[in-house]
Design a protein around this nucleic acid. Structure first.
Lengths: 128, 128, 128, 128
DNA sequence: GTGGTCTAGACCACG
DNA sequence: GTGGTCTAGACCACC
């Protein structure tokens, strides 16, 4: 797995790393039961501080994506039953990008095509 | 226009304000040609410092949403044809929320319903 | 003569107007002895405040470009013998744009071509 | 590097600082990959407020001269291939000074000598 | 240590 | 009246 980090982004590194891992799970590059690289290994690969990786892993654990086992390190979990506010959270996250894209002239159809493309890259997604 | 700011959010105030204004344009609460409240006025309304509002306005100007006329203050612009990378930006912004929602069990259909609801609130959007 | 003003520019209007008039003199659109429009007329044409035009004219007078005659209004002068620091001032003004253009990859030859083009538009310039 | 600021100039400090840094890059005093002093350090050296330096750095970042790395602060970038309108921008910037100098009697040859002198001070410039 | 944000209050130029 | 700039001093997140 290749992790792309942008050190000059305004998004903190630990958060970028977290996002990349979640996307990796979505794409099927990490399957439930898989181990994540150890904190050190990941830190070396990415050229960042182990503390930063640690923070990422703690967050992923709190969010229910992984379990951290003293003996085996971080393991991807099977079910991601997080908080039940998926819809509200999603709506809040979509509102701004959709509005901006609309104002900049993007057609709704084109928007849906784009969504389809994203869905098609997801593991186990219903193809349309 | 009522601007809702969350002072305990991790999103900077100047950015929240910027987002609220863009959403306002999307909803048609601000129409092209309209004046935005003056920096001081907006600052008073929101209970924040004028410099913070100033930063927001500068950003909106750079992004092409408004022009700051020496004589009349800030005015909403007509065309928002900014950079041609609307699609790429949108895709980058959608990737993560869609992936997360999918992994948490949200069906694609439900996702599209949610998008429709957002679109239906936009000024001049094609109703489906 | 058409005056182009940008009301959202960071350059004050009175200064933009001053620059446009100097450029007009350079192009030969205003010849020595010509009258400038009256303050009112100019203000109307440009859609700006007469006070602003007044400020421009005062500045042009101080800089030695025009004379302001109570009876005839503003007249373009023949000789523009300003302060003798033309070279130093010019060097200071050229340093930054040349450096930036160079750093952005503009070749020296291209730069000189561009200068030639500007010179060729000047009244009474030696053609090369 | 010595930064010369004129506190009585009409050009804002943050802009003067920005210009000085770009000139420094042009002269080779800052090479790609070099670190700029930290915001606080630069502020101390120049005797100005850190926020002012911050504004300069943000502007340099937006203009593509530097990147602000979360870990190491500001770094001079390698390529300055920004917007493709270098020529137009340059022309707009040269028009006025050339016109004024011409009207004040400066010969074209003298102008070119002056340009040569500026070019000769640039890092990696072709000597003529 | 770094940069990022925000405030309060001041002063200035512009129109 | 408007926006633009600057300061001093504070607090925060990140690494």
């Amino acid at each position: 797995m290749v992790i792309g980090l942008d050190f000059s982004s305004s998004i903190p590194i630990y958060r970028q790393l977290r996002n990349q891992i979640v996307l990796g799970i979505g794409r099927g590059q990490f399957a439930p039961g898989d181990d994540l690289p150890s904190v050190r290994q990941m830190a070396d690969e990415c050229g960042i501080n182990p503390m930063t990786v640690n923070k990422t892993y703690q967050q992923l654990k709190e969010e229910g994506w992984i379990a951290i086992d003293r003996r085996h390190g971080a393991v991807i979990l099977e079910h991601f039953e997080g908080k039940p506010d998926v819809r509200e959270k999603l709506q809040a996250e979509l509102m701004l990008p959709i509005t901006e894209a609309h104002l900049k002239g993007l057609e709704k159809e084109e928007f849906y095509q784009l969504c389809e493309r994203i869905f098609s890259q997801l593991r186990g997604a219903t193809q349309c």
